[in-house]
Design a protein around this nucleic acid. Structure first.
Length: 367
DNA sequence: AGCCATGATTGCCG
DNA sequence: CGGCAATCATGGCT
């Protein structure tokens, strides 16, 4: 009877949902419950607010959002994905707002319509104000439940959007060869203590053009996987040790030349440049102690220790065998006790060699 | 298609 | 909160 098409199903939003559904394969038209209690509505409201759907409109439209994203970032595909996400989000938000407005308007219209109707009828039959109030209450409840459906659908849409665009697992890209090179270089040259500080992480992130948390992830994965299967990484370890050995050797040469005066002016080119060689004198001290088969636990360690690691590799490689690739088990994972982690190099615990024993070449460089 | 490498997430712990 | 261990999900190779 009423000329209001309030039951028409928000076509635009529905199309968006369908599009997302097609792409994700997720079912979105799940729950259509009625009369959910108030707390649920509050939850939805909070969610929409948190997602920026029902908050103050920041961007004019999808085009504006995309333009803003392009202008702000401009670098890497990440921002492109992000802008895509934001465009979709603003699209959802616009639909949500227009629909919400439409519902409110419809609700008001319908209410006045009913009121007029009742008033007209009140001329022919007596109508108590209580009855009118009751009718208005019913109407408002009905419309609020519809609003709630809208909010719910929007919530689902946003959630699906998030899971699609922001779940990075779905869009995993391997790091560039260069980036893994840098990371591996750091890892294997700090093998005794592969826990980069926050600054080091930032530095690495900058060099690799990835985020700090990605660096953290990488080191977390690398540590656990290295520890899990050391044999698999030996070749890689030797490789990167040899690579960084050049810089280490240069450093040693510099240290030898001016063994007292500092300012080594690290002659390495580019990568691995910033975090090493605080002072060359301590390195020699540690080398001596290394030959004496006992580490000294001072905190001079971490950085200098890495150089020692590198030198060990070099020594093993140059002195041990001729064939570069064929040999294995030349590298003994020092500072890595059998069941635990890296243990901070302070404890002079005996070196364990888990992979088929005898690899532990306690190389002495007393030449 | 199957397999492994790899980046990211989750849950737990100190 | 950061690290570890397990796990997920994709990339890339065969």
């Amino acid at each position: 009877k009423h000329a209001l098409n309030c039951h028409r199903m928000k076509p635009a939003l529905f199309s968006v949902l369908c599009e997302i559904k097609e792409k994700t394969g997720l079912s979105i038209r799940g729950a259509q419950e009625e009369d959910p209690p108030d707390p649920q509505l509050m939850r939805l409201d909070n969610m929409l607010l948190a997602e920026g759907v029902s908050g103050p409109e920041k961007g004019g439209g999808s085009a504006a959002a995309a333009a803003a994203a392009a202008a702000s970032g401009g670098s890497s595909d990440n921002s492109i994905e992000h802008s895509d996400y934001r465009a979709k989000l603003t699209q959802i938000r616009q639909i949500y707002h227009t629909e919400l407005e439409k519902y409110e308007q419809a609700c008001n219209e319908f209410t006045t319509h009913v009121m007029n109707l009742l008033r007209e009828q009140s001329r022919t039959r007596p109508i108590s104000p209580k009855e009118i109030e009751r009718m208005v209450g019913i109407i408002h409840r009905k419309f609020s439940s519809i609003q709630m459906q809208l909010k719910q659908s929007t919530c689902e849409a946003v959630m699906i959007l998030r899971s699609r665009f922001l779940d990075a697992r779905r869009k995993r890209r391997n790091f560039s060869k260069q980036a893994t090179e840098i990371l591996n270089e750091y890892f294997y040259s700090h093998l005794s203590n592969p826990y980069p500080s926050e600054e080091a992480k930032e530095e690495l992130a900058k060099k690799c053009s990835i985020t700090v948390s990605q660096v953290s992830n990488w080191f977390g994965n690398k540590r656990i996987r290295y520890k899990k299967n050391i044999g698999k990484f030996q070749e890689e370890a030797n490789l990167y040790a040899a690579k960084t050995a050049v810089t280490a050797a240069h450093a040693v040469a510099a240290a030898v030349q001016n063994n007292q005066t500092n300012s080594p002016t690290t002659p390495n080119s580019g990568s691995s440049g910033s975090f090493n060689l605080p002072n060359s004198g301590d390195m020699f001290m540690n080398m001596q102690s290394l030959n004496g088969d006992s580490y000294q636990g001072s905190q001079v360690g971490a950085n200098v220790q890495s150089q020692v690691d590198t030198l060990r590799h070099v020594i093993n490689q140059t002195g041990g065998y001729s064939d570069g690739l064929g040999g294995n088990s030349l590298y003994s994972p020092h500072n890595l006790n059998a069941n635990g982690g890296w243990q901070d190099a302070t404890t002079p615990s005996s070196v364990t060699s888990p992979t088929e024993g005898p690899g532990s070449v306690h190389s002495d460089t007393s030449n």
